[in-house]
Design a protein around this nucleic acid. Structure first.
Length: 389
RNA sequence: GGGGGGAUGUCCGAGUGGUUAAAGGAGACGGGCUGUAAACCCGUUGGCUAUGCCUACGCAGGUUCGAAUCCUGCUCCCCCCA
């Protein structure tokens, strides 16, 4: 069996911080399985590649005999998101949270070993009495909380911060108390919250957790962190073709990081950027969908994006069967979820093709016979086959 | 409790009575080009039964031939003082 020192070195391998220095090794030296915590927010139930970076690290802990404690933040979600002034984000119902939590687990298990996971919901302990809340909130000061980078920035920018939001880090910290976390993982943006967990644990007379932060994966724009709300994410459950295409859209400059953080190896130096990116896309798809799906996705990309050909399987859109001329903007709007005005604009831009032939701006009404059985294409990637219903 | 500032399209952000469906930027989309859904260049970017009509600058009224721009009330946000 590996020594605690070797384990600690391995487990903190590509972490940004492993705090405090030496603490991980000390915990490992005790020889018992550690309780390694990760908190998940059940409001946006999709695990994306950014999460995968952290999940992989958790997996490494599992593979060395430790236990992952996955915390579903159902209670904090039920409180509703207080951020933003006109935020009308609906509070999630119990059913939604259950569904999201299930999706989350399912997707997290594409990386984690389900046999070594304990899933807990923080409603188990956060539904506490006022008295207990007082005890918790006494353990930190406003100045401490305001130190957190994003609060500081928002405060400086004069954007609203609700008291509830200030409370969030404390609630998260209390999770660590409740489950006796030995280690807590997160992205570097979580560093403050994770460290606060230590303070609160100490205040409750518990051993303090080790804080391990992982680098943030840049999104498909290559600049900002991958996040669903920024729309630059790739979900682990996304279809192979999407995953493949999106991966190819990342800027070349982001490739070394993606190789490093997702595949755990340096970008191959013997491949050109194009081949390296295709290889990356293929391996990522293979990981979540299998080798066959990855090969299909690569073939689809070659066919549709590079050869500009029609995909093999395209959805059928039913036309009304009354024989009247068909109003094209309406069909385009219905088939692809656009507005009719937008459909008209696209027609004007030569983006709409019927069986490969571009249509003009004036071709608004087309005889039904001409459309029946034809392939309608909008832009490079949206296709459907028309058929009279 | 007192004083000051603010609310504009997906987002950021100009605009203080008259081509303002609203500058500029970001994002997104389309076209060109390409090794790519990258970069770069060009274009588009409220809706509709479409040479016109409707909706839109926090909400509700008002002044005016005409308002995002002026007035009144309301709601919400930020800052300073107490």
């Amino acid at each position: 069996m590996a020594s605690a020192s070797e384990d600690a070195t391995f487990l903190s391998r590509n972490a940004v911080d492993c705090l405090p220095a030496g603490a991980l090794q000390d915990k490992l030296a005790a020889g018992r399985p550690l309780r390694v915590k990760l908190g998940l927010d059940p409001t946006a139930p999709d695990i994306h590649l950014g999460h995968v970076v952290v999940l992989q690290k958790l997996r490494e802990f599992q593979d060395r005999g430790h236990l992952v404690v996955l915390i579903v933040g159902d209670y904090t979600a039920r409180v509703g998101d207080p951020s933003g002034r006109s935020s009308t984000r609906p509070q999630l119902s119990g059913d939604d949270i259950d569904a999201n939590a299930r999706t989350y687990q399912e997707q997290a298990f594409t990386v984690l070993d389900p046999a070594r996971v304990e899933v807990r919901r923080n409603s188990e302990w956060l539904d506490m009495s006022m008295e207990e809340l007082f005890r918790l909130t006494r353990t930190a000061t406003v100045a401490q909380i305001l130190e957190r980078d994003d609060f500081a920035k928002r405060y400086a920018a004069q954007t609203p911060i609700s008291v509830l939001e200030l409370l969030y880090p404390m609630l998260q910290a209390y999770d660590s108390v409740a489950i006796d976390a030995d280690v807590e993982l997160g992205g570097t943006d979580q560093k403050f919250n994770l460290l606060l967990g230590r303070d609160v644990q100490r205040a409750y007379g518990k051993p303090e957790q080790v804080v391990l932060t992982m680098p943030i994966l840049p999104g498909v724009d290559g600049e900002r962190k991958m996040s669903k709300s920024l729309g630059n994410h790739i979900g682990v459950a996304e279809p192979p073709q999407e995953m493949y295409g999106k991966t190819l859209s990342i800027p070349d400059a982001a490739m070394p990081q993606w190789y490093d953080l997702l595949l755990g190896e340096p970008m191959p130096s013997d491949l050109g950027p194009r081949d390296a990116k295709h290889a990356l896309a293929r391996r990522l798809v293979a990981r979540f969908h299998g080798d066959a799906a990855a090969a299909d996705a690569a073939a689809h990309f070659e066919r549709v994006v590079i050869q500009k050909d029609v995909p093999e399987d395209i959805p059928v859109h039913a036309l009304a069967s009354n024989g009247a001329p068909v109003h094209l903007p309406a069909v385009i709007a219905d088939a692809f979820g656009l507005s009719r005005s937008e459909a008209r604009r696209l027609l004007g831009q030569g983006a709409v093709k019927l069986d490969g032939t571009p249509l003009g701006a004036g071709e608004l009404d087309v005889p039904a016979e001409r459309l029946d059985g034809a392939v309608l294409q909008v832009g490079k990637r949206r296709f459907c086959k028309l058929a009279r219903g």
